Amino acid sequence: MPKLIRKLGEPGDLGWVVKSHAEIYAAEYGWGFAYEALITQIVSAYATEHDDAREAAWIAEVDGKRAGSIFCVRGPDEATAQLRLLLVTPDARGLRLGVELVDTCLAFAREAGYKRMVLWTNDPLVAARHIYLSRGFRLTGSEPHNMWGAELTAQTYEIDL
């Protein structure tokens, strides 16, 4: 079962990120069209505005098939990177792809000169939270919301690089 983490850039990668997030989160958490619209906006902004020196995205593959994603984009200021769109498909879970994707993202952010990284997630995403905490992220904020038709708690995490 060969695994690979590669830079995003092959035909279909952007569409796969949107489709996979929309389908998986709808099936697992009931998040609908509004969530898909958010993912579409994030991917579209990356596709049209990213700076190769300061931003990157990766696709995880298992047996030559896409199985995960992660993005590192500019945060709210020049010193801060933002981790976005971490996903591992259900059939690829348990292979440590999430850890490898987060480690790849952190290494890039350090090399790009960022001083810290932030991320925004939601409380049902327990496996992702476990990865973030194991890598040294700390919870810095939380607040309830129902943006996608369910009562959720948004969480903000940060790490000094």
Rank of each mutant, 00 (worst) to 15 (best):
residue 112 A to M: 08
residue 150 A to T: 12
residue 118 V to I: 11
residue 43 V to K: 01
residue 25 Y to N: 01
residue 56 A to W: 00
residue 31 W to D: 02
residue 144 P to E: 09
residue 141 G to M: 13
residue 159 I to R: 06
residue 90 P to N: 06
residue 144 P to N: 07
residue 3 K to Q: 13
residue 48 T to E: 08
residue 37 A to Y: 11
residue 160 D to A: 15
residue 64 G to I: 11
residue 97 L to Q: 05
residue 19 K to P: 00
residue 124 P to S: 15
residue 76 P to L: 07
residue 133 L to Q: 14
residue 39 I to R: 00
residue 146 N to M: 13
residue 92 A to G: 02
residue 61 E to Q: 14
residue 47 A to Y: 10
residue 124 P to L: 14
residue 33 F to E: 15
residue 80 T to W: 00
residue 105 C to D: 05
residue 70 I to F: 03
residue 105 C to G: 05
residue 56 A to P: 03
residue 136 G to T: 08
residue 111 E to N: 11
residue 57 A to G: 08
residue 100 E to T: 12
residue 71 F to N: 00
residue 152 L to R: 09
residue 21 H to S: 05
residue 110 R to F: 06
residue 145 H to Q: 14
residue 70 I to Y: 00
residue 16 W to A: 08
residue 130 H to R: 15
residue 145 H to R: 13
residue 17 V to S: 00
residue 8 L to N: 04
residue 89 T to R: 06
residue 60 A to D: 02
residue 154 A to L: 04
residue 95 L to R: 10
residue 8 L to R: 00
residue 125 L to R: 12
residue 141 G to K: 13
residue 45 A to T: 14
residue 91 D to C: 03
residue 118 V to S: 06
residue 138 R to T: 13
residue 104 T to G: 11
residue 137 F to G: 07
residue 67 A to W: 01
residue 113 G to L: 05
residue 16 W to S: 09
residue 112 A to K: 07
residue 24 I to G: 05
